[in-house]
Simulated scan of single mutants.
Amino acid sequence: MNRRWTALDRRTKILVLGSALLLSATAASAATASDSEAPRQREAAALTGTAKLYRSAGDDITFSFDAHLAAKDTADPTKATGTFEFSHYLNGEGAKAKAKVDCLLTGGKVAVVSGVITSSDLPGAKGKRVGITVHDVGHRDRLGYSWASTGSPVETKGLPKCVGSAPFEKVKKGTGDFTVVPWLPDF
């Protein structure tokens, strides 16, 4: 009986050793394949997401962002691309607008994006530059916009790129999903 167990142990050891060698070879092959792939370069900055603002009167105000600054353009935030949209309705009346991004600056969890309105049902808004500031707090994001002191994007005159207001508005609970990728320029 001793010989049987010894032969069985030897076969078991060979099987286990063979399996271990096969697993090691597979892991080494996978590591080599992933090492040969170029590391993915992170974009220089970004602002994405959608949220509704909180207003006690029940206004329906929504902001959506899809703004990006490519890694190759890290030294020039005015090369940012993308769009953002906003709308404001109360009792069925209001307007919406879509803008083409012309600048994006981010720092930590704060982003300032500006763009020129390309389409809107607000008379006089098309062609106006607007700027928005977002604070990505996580559960309670905040937002501010360049027309806060004028009351309308139409009244904003001569706004430079990448200018917004302090993020004074609160995002409606459960709606904020803004994500800010911080800008890390090489100065």
Rank of each mutant, 00 (worst) to 15 (best):
A95I: 13
A45D: 06
A166R: 10
G115Y: 01
L47N: 02
V101E: 00
L8S: 07
E155C: 03
V171Q: 02
E43H: 07
T74R: 02
S152E: 10
S152H: 11
S34V: 12
I14Y: 05
G108L: 15
R142I: 11
R4A: 06
E85D: 14
W183K: 03
G82L: 03
A38P: 13
V113W: 02
V134H: 00
H139A: 13
D35Q: 12
A148G: 11
H135Q: 15
S119K: 12
S114Y: 07
L90D: 13
V116S: 01
H135G: 08
A67N: 02
A125C: 04
K52R: 13
S146L: 04
G115D: 01
E43P: 05
V113L: 01
R10F: 03
K96T: 14
L105G: 00
A125F: 05
E37S: 08
A38S: 13
R11M: 11
G151I: 10
T50C: 08
A99E: 02
R4S: 07
G151S: 08
P153I: 10
V112K: 00
F84I: 10
L22G: 15
I117K: 00
V113A: 03
V171A: 07
V101Q: 00
A80H: 01
K126F: 02
T133N: 01
A7W: 08
S29E: 11
V113N: 01
G107L: 13
E155W: 07
G144M: 03
L105K: 02
K72W: 03
S146K: 02
G94W: 05
V137L: 06
A70M: 06
T12V: 15
S36A: 14
D66I: 04
R142Q: 15
L122M: 08
R11C: 05
G92I: 10
T78K: 06
I61M: 04
K128Y: 03
L159H: 07
T133P: 00
F178H: 01
S64L: 07
Y54G: 03
K128H: 14
S56Q: 14
Y145E: 06
T6I: 08
S64I: 00
T179V: 08
E37W: 04
G176H: 03
T179W: 04
G138I: 13
D35N: 11
K96P: 00
